[in-house]
């Protein structure tokens, strides 16, 4: 994967995922390794995402590399008139690697065509956010000691949530059983169900999770946003059905862990935070190790 851009979760093979996860585990044991000394990484955030940017910049700093870039378009000289193409053409001559976040779908793929250095997609609109998916995989593997044969619960907005779509694609290498729990309006899109059928992966669709949550190994929560509903009354009726509370975790499996891409609003109530099954804050911290692993693999620095 040296010099290969990471734009979409489908750019990597199963073997490449596993290599990244192994490497991330090494970085977790020994986070400060100055293998990026003398290298410059550009972090171009055309839309603000403090969480993702800090995670990337921490990863780069722990590797001893340096960062140039901007945190959002308003604070940079990239004015509305300058095309993405021109910005990338400029930056590609300075940096050894480009990390890009952009509100437009496909922007990272396009940047990777223009850039002469590898590009990492840190989110392109509703499309892809592959480093999030890899940190989700890492968190699953770390808590379950395996990625194989798990019962994966995905709860909430399964229609628009890009993280659940990418995670579905990535997990499908590992023979999971999926449980999709969502209101009718926000069901997993048909194209993904067709994909699972083709891959002969089992899945079930439900509207409520309480009767079945005892089966879960991983519960992946997403936010149900009001603006996704065509009918506001429908939202009011359903919003509380997709909130996880501590009392609901009583009969869940001992190994069960709750993940969430963060930031959360109210879909996980605060009383869950103290439960050892709540893993979402650690999950976010894992992002730094996973990004260290991705950056060092792409720059060919791990030997």
């Amino acid at each position: 994967m040296q010099n290969k851009s990471l734009v979409s979760i489908t750019d990597y093979s199963k073997a490449e995922y596993l290599k990244i996860l192994d490497l991330a585990a090494e970085f977790e044991k020994n986070p400060n390794q100055e293998i990026l000394k003398g290298k410059l990484v550009a972090t171009l955030f055309f839309e603000p995402s403090t969480r993702t940017r800090l995670s990337f910049e921490t990863a780069i700093n722990r590797l001893g590399g340096r960062v140039i870039g901007f945190a959002d378009v308003n604070s940079s000289s990239v004015t509305k008139g300058e095309s993405l193409k021109d910005t990338i053409k400029m930056v590609t001559s300075y940096a050894d690697l480009i990390v890009i976040r952009h509100p437009t779908e496909g922007a990272a793929r396009y940047a990777s065509e223009i850039a002469t250095v590898p590009v990492i997609n840190a989110g392109d609109g509703a499309n892809q956010h592959p480093t999030q998916t890899l940190l989700d995989l890492y968190s699953i593997q770390k808590t379950q000691k395996t990625l194989e044969n798990l019962n994966m619960f995905m709860i909430g907005d399964l229609k628009y949530g890009r993280t659940v779509h990418s995670l579905l694609m990535a997990m499908s290498y590992f023979n999971p059983t999926f449980y999709f729990i969502s209101p009718d309006e926000l069901k997993m899109p048909r194209e993904y169900l067709i994909y699972l059928n083709q891959q002969k992966i089992k899945y079930y669709e439900y509207k409520e999770f309480m009767p079945i949550i005892s089966e879960a190994d991983i519960v992946y929560m997403t936010r149900v946003q009001k603006e996704r509903f065509s009918d506001p009354i429908e939202y009011e009726k359903t919003k509380n059905a997709y909130v996880l509370r501590n009392s609901m975790l009583e009969h869940t499996r001992a190994n069960m862990k709750i993940l969430h891409p963060l930031p959360r609003v109210n879909e996980i109530s605060l009383d869950v935070d103290e439960n050892p099954k709540a893993y979402y804050f650690t999950q976010a911290l894992n992002g730094v190790f996973v990004r260290q692993a991705i950056i060092s693999s792409i720059l060919g620095l791990n030997s």
Partner: peptide
């Protein structure tokens, strides 16, 4: 929202 509808791609 595709880049091909936003820039000259």
């Amino acid at each position: 929202m595709c880049i091909t509808n936003q820039e000259e791609v």
